[in-house]
Design a protein around this nucleic acid. Sequence first.
RNA 1: CGCGGUGUAGUCCAACGGCAAGACGCUCGACUGAUAAUCGAGAAACGCAGGUUCAACUCCUGCCGCCGCGACCA
Length: 976
Amino acid sequence: MSTETPLDLKKTVNLPKTAFSQKANLAQSEPARLEKWSRLDLYRLIRRAGEGRPKFILHDGPPYANADIHFGTAMNKILKDLVVRSRTMMGYDSPYVPGYDCHGLPIETHVEKALEKKGKKKSDLNLETFRRICREHAENALKSQTRDFKRLGILGEWDDPYLTMSNHYEAETARMFARFVERGWVYKGARPVYWCIKDQTALAEAEVEYHQHTSPSVYVKFPLQSDPAAIDPALAGRKVFVLIWTTTPWTLPANLGIAVHPDFEYSAFEYGDEVYIVASELVESVAAKCGLDAAPKVLARFPGSKLDRLECRHAWLDRTSLLMVGEHVTLGGEADAETELDVSEAQKKSDSKAGTGCVHTAPGHGHDDFVIGKRYGLEIYCPVDNAGRFTPEVEHFAGQRVFDANDLIVEFMRERGVLLFSERYEHRYPHCWRCKNPVIFRATPQWFIAMDQAHRDLVEKDEDGRDRTNFTDNPSETGSLRSAALEQIERVNWIPAWGVDRMRNMLKGRPDWCVSRQRVWGVSIPVFYCAKCTEAVADPAVIHHVADIFERESGDAWYTHSAQELLPEGYTCKGCGAQEWTKESDILDVWFDSGVSSIAVLENREELRWPADVYLEGGDQFRGWFNSSLMVGIAAHDRAPYNTVITHGWTLDAQGRAMHKSAGNAVEPEKVIKQSGAETIRLWCVSSNYFDDMRGSDEILQRVTDGYRKLRNTARFALGNLDGFDPARDSVPVEEMEEIDRWALAELNRVTKEVLAAYEAYEFHNVYRALYNFATVTLSARYFDIIKDRLYTFAPRNKARRSAQTVLLQIGDALARLLGPILVFTADEIWENLPNRTEPSIHLALFPTANDERHEALFAEWDRLFAIRDDVLRALEEARVAKQIGSSLEAKLTLGASGDALALLQKHQKDLRYLFIVSQIELGEAKGAGVSITISVADGKKCERCWNYSKRVGESDVYPTVCERCVAALAEIEQE
RNA sequence: CGCGGUGUAGUCCAACGGCAAGACGCUCGACUGAUAAUCGAGAAACGCAGGUUCAACUCCUGCCGCCGCGACCA
């Protein structure tokens, strides 16, 4: 049917049209979409859709329920969300139960500070009340975090997360402690902690502040008891002394050993009729300091390892001091924890080297001392009481306060002739944050989980903080926690692969796990002491009885009930038959809490299962949660609780520095969300490789926003050109498509394959790179640009146009699905604007499938064509610079080629004008290897409708301003 | 100081031992039918020093920088 009146030309051009706006307006649209998902109950719908599918369990490491989330927390949760969502779209049933770590010191500290602001003190409250306030604080914090996580688009069981402070969890924590007891891995021993002698309390590192402090610095002689000839024949028969240095003379009565570095070289040098051993590097500085010979005569040189397990006598006590080798020894000075700071300071002061390379070791008074002492089976000896006074057994100094004793000991040593030199030494020293007095390191009774052996006695006898346990240094001992852990980690898939090395290294070197804390806000150690004979009862049956009470009343029961009420009725002491009991006052390390999660959560929820497929946390968790979870998994089931462990890096600022609120370089998630939406943070997470540290700043996020816009516009172009396309009616079979459309589909297949593989390997940055590259290069710069003419100017129902649309639909569909886990909001929006959607949300859909066709010939041909196109574009640019043309449609292209190139161009001759986006092509044979390109001004006039140039513009009477192609198109349109 | 990681244009990052890719940004330009878009052209990089090799961004050693862990922080 032909109409009399000509059509309005502009209206016959099929310009893109879609409800998918160019401007995302994410800050507003995201909350609206979250609201919609909430109404749909999307998480529940996904669970229902996943019924019967194979399960994939990512187990959430609980963030600490204290402050608001920061950028790193956001990244951690988003990465987990990416795993869960991608596995869901791969066809797994992948439920996500988030958790919160609710106990611990930071909350106690926070609550204490809040109380102080109100003029109250912790001691004004009873412990139940204090715990109640802690609980409330955790509840508030986790509510606020939950709100933030949901806002980030994290999908999960937010209505019912797991809390380490829930009744059930606290009960399970107690039960797991019983499990460790059952396996014979729990014992009570001693361990040095920071101790304030004024407040008579243990202090956390967080409660310690460093101030300048003046201590006596002393060099002391320890006579060698072993035969010096064993070190070097030159020393045979000599009076040999090992020289130590310390700034805490009061710890000398507790000296049980001397540590040297196995690889350092030590020297024995002569002074009078005596011989002194110090590190070779320090011989001169020690000699100078102590006023010995300026050029001491060295009798022997030997590695520290030569001294291993030789014995000295204590400087004045009738006791052995064992020589040990340890990597912690430095040439800067003593390595007591109290003086660790001195070491770095002393090393900087090159003019005044302190120390001898032989480290005075008192296992009851220093961290490194404790560790090495344990390794060598030394007693954790601490003859100092709560008030900081020497116990009666300390000869000469019993009852003295340790700081007063310093000078007395120095004088005493001087009189005895064992002191070589002393001076006043100013250094940074830990002080109590409350009373501002200097603190000491002091061994106190603690509960441990043994790494290396099963203890015959459930609870090791312990008097006055002494550890009587044998410590074996044999990790291969079967049945030990350490050996089982070392074996299990080899079966775990670590991503990146170096994780296993790090874990192995950590496990090999770690001391027994100290699980007791002298704190309030946590799960009590469910142990009772007989009031008569002080027998400790750590009985699994009793603990289970207590756990059942926790299950009903929460762990608060430990504080609200008496020991008798918590024990089974009529429980009597096996030792003395008494029935009066006291309760242990320590709580469990919060790492024990969170380590229990795989048991408390995975085994207790219908939809989950043990072990987990994946744990995904930052690298700080090797010593933390990965470790504690492993310990618990082995205690419970002799197996790691995870099959795969993925580690992510740290969030840094643009300069690669750690983000700190105080440094002012922290990027706040809330602010970013407000400005450019959660989608920006999500996209940032995949914009670089999370296995390494990730950098974030306003500028970097701006780049990410630009990337987002590019993706959005690409999707928008596809959607806009699908206006009026009915897939059922208009789709064109692949065989009947234009060749470039088939090429685009092959490219889509290729990128789909790549993206699916990247998701499979958790390499989300490769997902992003592949999709981004596809969107910008393959689609935006090439395919879309080329098919515009066909889409816009051909009759709407023209088969060639429908061919392109068929491809665009597949592209839009695949983009939405493949971006689904990342751009959760935008992908859903794309999905809504596609004509073929089946599910109500993209998040109920699955990933597209890729076929195995290689399309090698097709790719080879089009790669060649696009290479020629690059040359053509360069030539067109030159013509543009020469003011010959503006738009490329103003050009006529003359191509000359020979051989294969000519054949290729001839084969696609019909398509070349579209491929190069010019109005006319002249193709001829030319000599030479490459393709010769000549640009000239196109012939004829510009067609008003399609903007191509043609000599035939004006041929039509009805449409005098239009070219022959448009005349045909208009005829087609008129027929419709 | 130990253990582990990491270092490529201004930025984010890629490359079986074989011409150092892509993107953002920048400079210049085109278009005004993806338009607070789109398209094109251009300038711009392997932390340092050795070693292995015909050949090293890649492998090895050392140094330097940065990050994490080494805490009753979590």
